[in-house]
Computed example of a mutant assay.
Amino acid sequence: MNRIMILLAGLVLLASACTSSKQAGEATASGLNPADFRTEVDGKQTDLFVLKNKNGMEVCITNFGGRILSVMVPDKDGVMRDVVLGFDSIQDYVKYPSDFGASIGRYANRINQGKMTIEGVDYQLPQNNFGHCLHGGPRGFQYQVYDGHQLSDQVLELTYLSKDGEEGFPGNLNCKVTFSLTDDNAIDIRYSAETDRTTVVNMTNHSYFNLDGDPSKTNSDYLLTIDADAYTPVDSTFMTTGEIAPVEGTDMDFRTPTAVGARIDNDFIQLKNGLGYDHNWVLNTQGDITRPCATLESPATGIVLDVYTNEPGIQVYAGNFLDGTLTGKKGIVYNKRASVCLETQKFPDTPNKPEWPSALLKPGEKYDSHCIYRFSVKK
């Protein structure tokens, strides 16, 4: 009888352990613990969602800020590497404000002095970056909790209602971000939105790519190509001047593959104003989603990232503000220029530059933005 009782007790403990393990979730291929992403932020439940394709590629996403947490892709030797920066838990994302991997909104990039006029009405937005409104303000979409719906092993849908007046923007904006992991190793991101009042919308993804899978290394050797004959210069506060300038004969010319670090510290006013590369390029692709608008390659790992978009511009940010104060996944310190961001977008400050592609969205219209990050290997 005692043996039977001991056996039953053991079975109960085993079942309990299995249930606890299931609830906690197994670690992802990138080493993230799902339990570390399950909590409440502002009264809403957060979670970790995992997408996998037939090639073994894995993308982890949280609905807190619609953030890509990790991206596991093979290098030229078949070794799987995590190629984006980020943290190991929701607590760190909350504690250390950042844009790592985020679905940015309501308006990506900067709006001059946080001021804009829509249909004759003046709006004052938060001034959270050198006097300007950056990435929708200090409580932009990257700090909100989306509603997450995993539609399949390879598709995740996130939705968010940005209420009228949130961060000063007009209109109730119903947003959707759909992540699809394709079998050709691409992260296909579609943004859509509808409003009940004329507003501005400019969403993007703010992943920090480190194609070495080693954030202790800088981006200086990465080869960058941008299909753009022009860019939008900035002043010393990172605000676009309104000029569209040719890249020809300047350190902004990436029409052929060029190492990111080859000219980044040159004595050129735009590199001084941006503290390196932190600029919007005017794409030649003109909304053609079938043509790569930018390519980033690591000669060390052979990993190649091609970017496609229907947007007119791409902001390339070379991690100039990373300064070693943040410790990310696996305890690695993120030093200056440990990554490259490739943010497809409308041009910065378009609400105040009517001659540029418009970011206005009116009732009855549908906002549609499309970005594809496709990974491959060059051996």
Rank of each mutant, 00 (worst) to 15 (best):
M1Q: 07
R3F: 10
A15D: 07
K22C: 15
A24R: 03
G25S: 06
L32Y: 00
A35S: 08
T39D: 11
D42S: 09
K44F: 13
L48D: 03
V50C: 11
G56V: 05
F64V: 13
F64C: 12
S70K: 00
V73K: 07
V73E: 07
D75K: 09
K76A: 11
K76S: 09
D77G: 03
L85C: 02
I90C: 04
I90H: 01
Q91M: 13
K95H: 04
Y96G: 06
G101D: 08
S103A: 09
R106N: 07
N112W: 00
G114I: 09
K115D: 14
T117A: 04
Q127K: 14
N128W: 12
H135Q: 01
H135V: 11
G137D: 07
R139A: 07
F141D: 07
F141C: 13
F141G: 14
Q142E: 13
Y143C: 12
Y143A: 10
Q144H: 15
Y146W: 14
D147S: 10
G148D: 05
D153P: 12
Q154K: 05
T159E: 12
Y160P: 04
L161T: 04
K163N: 11
F179D: 08
L181C: 02
A186M: 02
I187L: 06
Y191D: 04
S192H: 00
A193R: 00
V201W: 03
L211H: 09
L211T: 15
Y222S: 07
L223P: 04
L223A: 07
D227H: 09
D227V: 15
A230S: 08
Y231A: 01
E243T: 08
I244R: 06
V247K: 03
T250Y: 12
T250F: 14
D251S: 11
M252L: 08
F254Y: 12
A259V: 15
A262V: 15
R263P: 00
N266G: 14
D267K: 02
F268W: 05
I269K: 10
G274H: 02
G276A: 14
D278M: 11
W281C: 13
V282D: 03
L283H: 01
N284S: 09
T285C: 08
C293Y: 02
E297D: 08
P299S: 14
P299W: 12
A300W: 05
I303W: 00
V304Y: 06
Y308G: 00
T309M: 03
Y317N: 05
N320C: 11
G324D: 02
Y334G: 08
R337K: 14
L342G: 01
L342I: 00
E343M: 11
D349T: 13
D349R: 10
P354K: 06
W356Q: 14
A359W: 01
P363G: 00
G364W: 06
I372P: 11
F375N: 01
K378V: 10
K379I: 13
